[in-house]
């Protein structure tokens, strides 16, 4: 099976790296408050599951929520921009400013203005995630093949027909590529914003667990929470890559190579 072969090499590499790490920590007798062995991280993860699982779930909810809002918001704003150059000229600079300003710098302000911490985290994660969806979808809406444009013009397509049967289908793979980038960014936004918020509020996510552990210098617990963040990122990326591959092969036989990806 091809899928299995694709998995084996990276899996072996990860195992080898973990093995080397474990061996190094044991042989060099590195103290666990500096670098814990992977096995210790795993057992810490297991024994702290009670506190880590709810936090993980919280972080996932913020990430997925922000991502969903970024998908809808980014695509809608892109459609609006595609319909009106004036709107684009007026609003794109705002979007770019939001994009280029580091979220750690914006997050404290958002947390001041919004009383609800969960809403503030959601907004922060959305701010970092929506831009790649917007810029990719916009590129897709503008990537219509000139011949098809002429065909639609010849048969006097109405604007909504053009949007539904020409612009949107053309933009779909671009939108998907944007979403794949946005997935990782939403997670980063959710974690970073929580760092800025500090461990406040009743419900808190993995960032708060990392902060807590760092105050108490519980390094293995920091690693355990960190491992969950990484796993979440990998899972999101893998999920979108799979959706992308399935959708695009089904859809047009066109590979991803042909599709420009506006990097965040």
């Amino acid at each position: 099976m091809r899928a299995a072969r694709d998995w084996i090499a990276p899996a072996l590499l990860v195992l080898a790296l973990l093995g080397a790490w474990e061996a190094w920590v044991r042989i060099a007798e590195v103290p666990q408050y500096l670098v814990p062995a992977p096995s210790l991280v795993a057992t810490t993860l297991w024994t702290n599951l009670d506190s880590l699982l709810p936090s993980w779930w919280f972080t996932i909810r913020i990430t997925v929520g922000a991502l969903a809002l970024a998908a809808v918001g980014g695509a809608l704003i892109a459609c609006a921009f595609a319909l009106s150059r004036t709107l684009e000229r007026a609003l794109l600079p705002v979007a770019i400013v939001l994009q280029v300003t580091p979220i750690v710098a914006i997050a404290p302000l958002v947390l001041i203005y919004l009383d609800d911490t969960t809403a503030a985290l959601l907004l922060c994660a959305w701010i970092v995630a929506f831009f790649p969806v917007l810029s990719n979808t916009l590129a897709g809406l503008r990537a219509v093949e000139p011949g098809l444009r002429e065909l639609f013009a010849l048969h006097r397509a109405r604007p909504w027909q053009r949007l539904r049967w020409l612009l949107l289908p053309t933009a779909v793979p671009y939108f998907m590529a944007g979403l794949r980038i946005a997935g990782g960014l939403a997670l980063i936004g959710a974690v970073v914003a929580e760092f800025a918020a500090g461990a406040a509020g009743r419900e808190t996510g993995l960032a708060s667990r990392i902060l807590e552990a760092s105050f108490r210098t519980e390094i293995p617990r920091m690693y355990a929470a960190l491992a969950l963040v990484s796993l979440t990122g990998i899972a999101i990326y893998g999920l979108f890559a799979a959706i992308d591959r399935w959708w695009i092969s089904k859809w047009s036989g066109r590979g991803l190579e042909g599709i420009a990806t506006a990097k965040a």
Partner: peptide, 10 residues
Amino acid sequence: FQDPTLMPWA
């Protein structure tokens, strides 16, 4: 047209 200009998704 000189090219088929078909919609690849349809």
